[in-house]
Simulated assay, not measured.
Amino acid sequence: MKLLQRTITAILPAPMVERMRSETNRWQVRCGACGATQPLWEAGGIRYKKTATASVSATIMACPNCGCLRDAVVERSDG
């Protein structure tokens, strides 16, 4: 768990943390170099009550598969 996740889970009530984790797990991060995907929560991200209409966004991450520090796509994994 990344620092942001540890901090938030220490501060917020457990039911809210579970809702946040569940909602975040509906998102995945896809590496721009090799195409490997992983759940956003496992990558250290949080996506909670996202209200924007776009279901895709971009970020930079170190891919655990290829080791590249590259652009990555954050996208919904359930539809």
Rank of each mutant, 00 (worst) to 15 (best):
T7Q: 14
S57I: 00
R26M: 00
R76A: 11
V74F: 05
A54T: 04
I8L: 15
S77Q: 10
R76N: 03
A33K: 08
C63S: 07
I60A: 08
P13M: 15
I60Q: 07
M1Q: 12
V56S: 10
L4K: 15
R30L: 07
S55D: 13
T37N: 06
Q28I: 06
I46T: 03
L40W: 03
L4C: 14
A52W: 07
V73L: 14
W41I: 00
M16C: 11
T37Q: 10
L3H: 13
D71M: 14
V74N: 09
R30Y: 04
E23V: 02
V29F: 01
R76F: 08
Y48V: 02
T7C: 13
Q5V: 05
M16S: 12
T37F: 02
I46R: 03
K49I: 00
A43R: 01
L3Q: 13
P64A: 00
I8V: 12
L12V: 11
R26A: 00
T24H: 11
E75Q: 10
I11E: 15
W27F: 15
L3W: 13
T9E: 15
I8G: 08
A52D: 00
N65Y: 03
C34V: 01
R26Y: 00
P64M: 08
E42R: 08
C68T: 09
G44W: 02
R19K: 14
E42V: 02
K49F: 02
W27T: 05
M16E: 11
A33P: 01
G45E: 01
Y48D: 06
